[in-house]
Design a binder for these strands. Structure first.
Lengths: 248, 248
DNA sequence: GGTAATAATAGTCATTAGTACCATGTACCG
DNA sequence: CGGTACATGGTACTAATGACTATTATTACC
């Protein structure tokens, strides 16, 4: 079986531009789905952890690196790749808004792809290759769920940000509008936010205060950051008696 | 590379007995970790969906079937198996309390295992094989998180149950005690619960009312139950192409 | 400069949700 | 038959939320 099964990594990379959630896509050059947009993806190397592979693939195929990564789901339905059984461990990635258009993290296609571009997630350029549309849908849904109990939003913002910035992230992801005053109150209550002295001139009217998130960067308990939670185990007594004994 | 990578499925199967959360373990007979307890697991067949594989493996290795399944995480760190690169797509399973000890779903070891038993999750019989201890920890943590926003608890109960039963599930999983009165009020507000006429004689004092959960069995949006969420796409213009072979 | 426009921030208040706790009902057990 | 245990009902207090108004600091424009 293992000879015929392909294992790949695909990453849904998100960033916020102009108040809209964007996803990073690359254009395929080979069959099948030649010419279609797809998620940056590729094969895992033999001695490479998943996260490292995802980072590498993202940088090789789209010129983007240094993102925050979290495993999303593993898709393995027979038939999702017309060539044969294919298993994709998928990740989603978040990167700060400013990094997108500004120089070093501009998307550009790597070898094997003819283009790499950011696209608004609610306005994709046609159906994606394979089941990648479904993967994007699910990533987006997960994002919208998880942002309420995990400090994901701060990975989409630069180190210092205003409450408007933060509100923009929530509004883009959740798709609802929030009252600025109530929103600020809730954020200050929920997260560890430290005020930063200066103000960033957003050429708006009244200058907005700057904040910095100083809490944990991810929710404790995730397997990426699992510190082998304390677990009481009995000393392994009796490795001998090995009969089928049903407990309870 | 694909020749050297193993892909397996492991399942953390939970059930509640005597108010404690139990996990289903099997005892290994082969190296490595011969004689150690491990999660029921095995290889995926070439044309088999993950869920089907998990159900099959659970029934083959531990004699248990018909459980509720949800994908947990995919573990693929190099070094997690001393024999070489191994990737495990893990699931967690939930089954009603009554099924455990009662006949048809008694745990019993399949070929290749010397034992199959339920063990209290906070009192495991020594360190588990491979990184399975870590997997159990994570499954348990996920369960404790997800029970608050997903109707997981009802998969651990028979069709009809009392509020005490339900409260027992929450207390075993979350590890806190709840005020019976407040708990009932919250459950009735959060979930779709229909009262069932009779009462089950739990030989307690005052007979408790029976309820049945009539809402959706899993949270909508999960990829297992994804109905290809609506997504506006522009028509795919420019299907120009070239060569090269990139997989996904 | 004066003033309108705009968005940030502050504050108010009614409603809702959450928590602690007491009261009563209905069994079982001496 | 009274005591105990647990299910259920209810009440009062507190915290969180949401809708709304007010104030403030800046820019744009005249």
């Amino acid at each position: 079986m293992r000879h015929e099964m392909h294992l790949t990594i695909e990453t849904v990379c998100f960033a916020l531009t102009e108040g809209r959630l964007q996803v990073l896509l690359v254009k395929r050059t080979g069959e099948p789905f030649s010419g279609a947009w797809a998620l940056p993806g590729g094969q895992i190397q033999l001695d490479e952890p998943f996260d490292a592979a995802a980072q590498r693939i993202l940088s090789e195929s789209a010129g983007v690196w240094g993102v925050y990564l979290e495993q999303l789901y593993t898709f393995g339905d027979p038939g999702r790749d017309p060539r044969g059984r294919s298993v994709s461990v998928t990740y989603y990635a978040l990167m700060p808004a400013m990094s997108v258009g500004s120089g070093m993290r501009t998307a550009r296609p790597g070898p094997g792809w003819s283009a790499a571009e950011w696209h608004p997630v609610d306005q994709l350029p046609g159906p994606l290759a394979f089941d990648h549309g479904r993967i994007v849908s699910y990533a987006r849904w997960r994002l919208s769920q998880k942002i309420s109990y995990s400090p994901l939003a701060f990975h989409l913002l630069p180190e210092n940000f205003t409450m408007s910035d933060l509100r923009g992230v929530y509004e883009a992801i959740v798709g609802e509008e929030y009252d600025p005053s109530n929103f600020t109150r809730q954020m200050l209550a929920r997260w560890d936010l430290a005020p930063v002295p200066g103000t960033r001139d957003r050429r708006s009217r009244r200058p907005a205060r700057l904040y910095r998130y100083i809490g944990p960067r991810e929710i404790p308990g995730s397997p990426d950051s699992l510190d082998e939670i304390e677990m009481e185990t009995e000393p392994a007594l009796d490795p001998a008696s090995s009969e089928s004994e049903t407990r309870d």
